[in-house]
Nucleic acid binder design. Sequence first.
DNA 1: CCCTATTTGTGTTTGATTGCACAATTTTGT
DNA 2: ACAAAATTGTGCAATCAAACACAAATAGGG
Lengths: 206, 206
Amino acid sequence: MPAKIIPDIVIGRMPIYLRALTRKFESGRTVTSSQELGERLGISAAQIRKDLSQFGEFGKQGTGYNIEFLIQKIQEILKVNRIWDVAVIGAGYIGHAVANYGGFHKRGFRITKIFDNDPKKIGAEFNGITVQDLSTMKAEIQKSGIQIAMLTVPAEAAQEVADQLVEAGVKAILNYAPVSLKVEKGVRVQHIDPAVHLQNMTYYLD
Amino acid sequence: MPAKIIPDIVIGRMPIYLRALTRKFESGRTVTSSQELGERLGISAAQIRKDLSQFGEFGKQGTGYNIEFLIQKIQEILKVNRIWDVAVIGAGYIGHAVANYGGFHKRGFRITKIFDNDPKKIGAEFNGITVQDLSTMKAEIQKSGIQIAMLTVPAEAAQEVADQLVEAGVKAILNYAPVSLKVEKGVRVQHIDPAVHLQNMTYYLD
DNA sequence: CCCTATTTGTGTTTGATTGCACAATTTTGT
DNA sequence: ACAAAATTGTGCAATCAAACACAAATAGGG
């Protein structure tokens, strides 16, 4: 029997559930319900139950879900019950911001490499990590086996750098450059472009 | 006749089309087709045609779409054929990065105010804008009539600051804090959380 | 111990989104 | 001038996602 295909859209909600559950857990709560979680997130309780039921039966009728247990399960599902090494490409403002963000580790990630092509930045330290020359990127990433990269280079360079990342074996790219990347099948891309997000909302303003 | 309701998911694709079209325009192209655009974006040509047809008939059989004209139309639809003032709340690494990003203006936005509650940051200049005391935020935003805010404060403070923003009349919040915000109906929120985006991809890795 | 409150997991229905396929139109090439 | 190629806009079908609704299980209170 082949593993059941889980819709992308369901996978996309799991990190949201995980984030909310982690906050509840840190505030000392031990159990929650689909209804409570749904109200918190603006998602229907039925949807949350159906999403979770795609992966197993994690709740208990009458009481709801044990938060710590559910966190563990979702971490397993999303494979963030381990730490993934991440490379940051581009040491500008955004690269700086993500390198200095302290919240990645407890969510399954660790930035281990930063690259840039600006001689003034190469050799600098970002949060304990030395900025390396972009020209060494492909070899370094191949050697390290890194599968995840955050791309914070200018739009003009993004596609070319992305192509190199894919050649180096990277399978997941979080793209901050304001351009749609084309990558081969089997490589995942997520886009973060604040202007796109803002333009998404202006339609509804007046 | 009431205006036709356009699905959110269609609105969400329009900024992507706009971004791709703008790039084509800047590279000197004058016309494109749904097929070409779709290949570029990994979206079916039929979907692009259907999306655009929700708003009018912008293309020409046999030739396709005039890029400059279509850009204008999409800018009108998204209401970014004007410049929106935006407030940035939080002058940390992310606030710094967005304040210094030069690309907003040509996409319809201008950061005009920055707030923080850290005395060491208040009074500093970020890209020509003086960081103001967070305690003055509500009054300042009300006075200015700003409808859009980017929220780059720590997770613990995010909901409280968001509530103040809504009280001050803000109708659109781009939230960088790693927490789901609850806002009243009529206020739009978009979330940017790199860890969520990364966790979205680790499911597919091994 | 039993009745009432909750709450899950899921089969079924409803609704939304995408893809298909083609007539109509325009351009291009000979 | 005409045929072939390209391309749009859209009705219809198919697929996908969300909501509904309820049996089954559990907890709590007197």
